[in-house]
Simulated assay, not measured.
Amino acid sequence: MATFVTRDGTEIFYKDWGAKDAPTIVFHHGWPLSSDDWDNQMLFFLGEGFRVVAHDRRGHGRSTQTDTGHDMDTYVADVLELAELLDLNDATHVGHSTGGGEVARYAARARPGRIARAVLIGAVPPIMVQTPANPGGLPLAVFDETRAALIANRAQFFLDVPSGPFYGFNRPGATVLPGVIQNWWRQGMMGGTKAHYDCIKAFSETDFTEDLRAIKVPVLIQHGEDDQIVPIANSAHLAIDLVAQGTLKTYPGLSHGMATVNADTINADILAFIRS
């Protein structure tokens, strides 16, 4: 397994596949998952001639189950170190959900030349929680309920989320995919419960408004119109007005987990964006 140790002693697991001189795509996973959530995309883009890189965020997957550093600044500092270690230049960074926030902050802070474009899929920016400046956000009580469910029975909660709203399997007529549910559960249970608990605050309360404004590279924003986890009205519809070079592509009826259950559609649009 490939790992590196950050400046604060955290071991980060990562995958790095493909020719090192090929155009690079870096994938950033959502909560509470791991780089395995990008299996389809990693294989697809590798087959298209790209170098593909993905890491397990600290506390998640195979990375150290540290009890500290579960905030967006530290998450991005880890990615900055990974980019330096692998000397990733002119890369496309693709982030889903929490990973979309990570990409937005990374894009705003990365050294010039490190990032060429960004893709945000069902992403949390600009900010999820309801505040006076963000009256359309979700009430803090929603995230308090998530924390309470995690504490009460993490294993059951990590079955309930993918069985229902994450992939839209709770919608009438939905084709339920048990393997997808089990894989979500597997990835979640690999990580540390302290990391997962703290990350709820990171993904829900971090304000990415200024990060989005600071991004200088082209940005593709992809969002399912039936996203029950990160509602489109308070995320993609706001984020597109904050980026300088943005393209918004929405998908009628698709869920938060569309990169998995509708991978062919999502992959084709990312590929077209990169090659445009």
Rank of each mutant, 00 (worst) to 15 (best):
T64D: 15
R51W: 04
K15I: 09
G47I: 11
Q41I: 02
F50L: 06
F27Y: 14
D37R: 08
V52Y: 09
G59Y: 07
W31P: 02
P23F: 03
S35T: 10
G47C: 07
H55P: 00
H28V: 14
Q65S: 04
D71I: 01
F50T: 01
A19D: 15
D71R: 13
D36Y: 11
G61L: 06
Q41G: 02
K15M: 11
P32K: 06
N40Y: 15
N40R: 09
L33F: 04
E48K: 15
V52T: 14
Q65F: 07
Q41V: 01
Q41H: 15
L46K: 12
F27Q: 12
E48A: 14
V26M: 12
Q41M: 12
D56Y: 07
S35Q: 12
G49W: 09
V53Y: 03
S35L: 15
M42Q: 15
L43N: 10
V53G: 00
D36C: 06
D56Q: 11
V26K: 00
S35W: 08
D56R: 09
V52R: 08
D56T: 10
G59V: 05
H28M: 14
W17P: 00
R58E: 00
T68W: 05
D21H: 07
D21Q: 13
H60S: 07
A19Q: 10
R51Q: 04
H70I: 00
F44C: 00
A54L: 10
G59A: 04
V53E: 02
N40Q: 08
S34H: 06
K20C: 00
G18A: 07
V53W: 04
T68S: 14
A54W: 08
R62N: 12
F50D: 04
S63E: 02
W31V: 02
L43M: 08
D21E: 15
H29G: 11
D36H: 14
G49Q: 09
T68C: 04
D16L: 01
A19T: 03
A54Q: 08
H28C: 15
K20M: 02
N40K: 08
D37H: 08
G69K: 11
D71W: 00
F50S: 02
